[in-house]
Design a protein around this nucleic acid. Structure first.
Length: 483
RNA sequence: GGCCUCAUAGUAUAAUGGUUAGUACAACGGGUUUUCAUCCCGUCAAUGUGGGUUCAAUUCCCGCUGAGGUCACCA
């Protein structure tokens, strides 16, 4: 059975540069009925950020990446916080000490720095094994424990990068356990993955250069190698560097707060660096689970394109409305309406949504795009008299047109106030006033919305209702008359 | 600097030892009785460079260039 894991360290939020190393292992495990594990790698007390774990869980839940084992849900290999697994690491460390593959290193950090500087000055690669202390004390907590490297060449297969190899020059005496008694990532992840039965390790390809040391550890610990997947980086908007917080990488939840749907985020990120060879762009989670394959993961970095995810989010907004119904989409919009909508009933907001949703790129667009449905717009006559189509009409002509519209619409009975009747009425007005749609419709549209854009005139008027529509037309007529 | 990795339009990608190098986003233009958007149609735009293998290379090999990663008691 395939077992994968996501093992973040709680040093802050999850951003789009690192969330993919949760998505891919999730897909790999779940598509084969395997298990996805969430482990928190909190061995660095200095970088620990209060509340970061909650942010991480929040992000995964929002994306729909549910884990089978790990923090909160438990599992056969508890605990899932590395800080609580000290005894386990020490037990494995003892094995290495007993077999002569690890030693306590009493060398002070300042001395190590001097070694490093000296080697750099001589332009030779700094390898700690060249400075291995002669007399090493018995190991106990409080002294760092180092691996004793036996340099040699390694070959391995990376499921993404292909066949890899390295020479003995990269094997070194890496720290296994720090002075504070907690293990380094290098040691801890190997122990944990083995104890937890992880079969596929997917992580960013910055770990590629550490592989020889990891392979040495598997060997020395008598552990079988899992399969390795080195994932390409997501690149910053400028340059070709991997995207990080310094480049302003936004947290995944920030996109949520801006009205990006989790489906769109998952879809976009899964397809950034992977494709199934077809021309399909929009994938549901189920489709991703069905189609995802390790051998089609890209092996070069990809840039996060905010424009494309906006497009994709628009696609998803329409997909949900069309396939699951407007109620399903409406359920996602809480918190995205303008303040002016607060007092309005759900039914009304739902009708507004039903005529505006195909204009949305993000849910937060609702805030700017629907205000005039909830409160009377401020009348700005220049918006009418200087409008490209309307400026050739005199104010009296505008007033006459508004009067014609008001009279026509007033005659529509309340129970016949619908998009269809309204369209018929507007068409009649077009004939009666001998005006082009570009003039007449523009006037009415602006008069009832004063918005740069709005849905079709008849739909807007229908949702607005007879009373509000007429009141707005009247106000504008009055304002023009007093001008 | 050592070691490692990568290289198709602005971006994400497809494809094959032989194609008019395909698609999507973006940009630009047009259509759908007003606007904006949706939808539809169209235009622009790419195999980094130099060798080699081959009848044929974007594809295979080598050099170069460019870019990235890594060389912590961080992960």
């Amino acid at each position: 059975m395939i077992k994968t894991r996501f093992a973040p360290s709680p040093t802050g939020y999850i951003h789009i540069g690192n969330v993919r190393s949760a998505i891919y292992p999730y897909l790999i495990a779940k598509q084969s009925g395997g298990k996805f594990i969430l482990r928190i790698e909190d061995t660095d007390r200095a970088r620990y950020v209060e509340g970061a774990t909650e942010l991480i869980l929040d992000t995964l839940k929002w994306l729909g990446l549910d884990w089978d084992e790990g923090v909160e849900v438990g599992g056969a290999n508890e605990p899932y916080y590395q800080s609580e697994r000290k005894d386990i690491y020490h037990k494995w460390a003892k094995k290495l000490i007993d077999s002569g593959r690890a030693y306590a290193d009493p060398t002070p950090p300042e001395v190590i720095d001097e070694y490093r500087k000296a080697d750099n000055a001589k332009k030779i690669p700094f390898l700690y094994r060249n400075h291995r202390p002669k007399d090493t004390p018995e190991w106990h907590e409080g002294i760092p424990l180092r691996f004793k490297a036996e340099p040699k060449a390694y070959e391995w297969h990376d499921e993404v990068m292909g066949d890899m190899h390295s020479g003995p020059e990269v094997c070194d005496d890496i720290i296994l356990i720090k002075k504070d008694g907690l293990p380094t990532y290098n040691f801890a992840h190997i122990v944990d993955d083995a104890e937890m039965g992880v079969t596929h390790i997917a992580r960013g390809n910055e770990y590629l250069s550490s592989m020889p040391n990891y392979l040495a550890l598997y060997e020395a610990l008598g552990l079988e190698r899992p399969k390795f997947l080195s994932l390409p980086h997501i690149l910053a908007p400028q340059g070709n560097k991997k995207l990080g917080k310094r480049d302003g990488a936004k947290s995944v939840t920030e996109y949520r707060d801006e009205g990006i749907l989790p489906e769109a985020m998952l879809n976009y990120l899964a397809c950034l660096g992977w494709n199934d060879g077809t021309e399909q762009e929009i994938y549901t989670k189920d489709e991703l689970l069905d189609r995802f394959s390790i051998d089609r993961i890209q092996n070069s970095g990809a840039r996060f394109d905010e424009t494309k995810i906006l497009w994709m989010n628009g696609q998803w907004i329409r997909k949900i409305a069309n396939e699951q119904g407007i109620d399903a989409l409406y359920a996602r919009t809480a918190g995205f309406w303008p303040d002016s909508a607060a007092a309005y009933p759900d039914a009304y907001k739902k009708r507004v949504l039903s005529i505006i949703y195909d204009r949305l790129k993000t849910l937060s667009d609702l805030r700017d795009m629907t205000d005039y449905f909830f409160k009377n717009p401020k009348i700005l006559l220049p918006a009418i008299v200087t409008q490209k189509m309307l400026k050739k009409l005199s104010e009296q002509e505008l007033i006459d047109l508004l009067s014609a519209a008001i009279e026509k619409l007033q005659n529509i009975p309340d129970d016949k106030w619908s998009a269809d009747t309204l369209q018929a009425a507007f068409n009649e007005l077009l004939v009666e006033t001998k005006k082009k749609p570009g003039e007449f419709f523009t006037l009415i549209r602006i008069a009832i919305s004063f918005a740069p854009f709005s849905p079709a005139l008849n739909l807007t008027a229908e949702v607005l209702g007879k009373e509000a529509t007429l009141a707005r037309l009247n106000s504008v007529r009055t304002a023009l008359a007093n001008d």
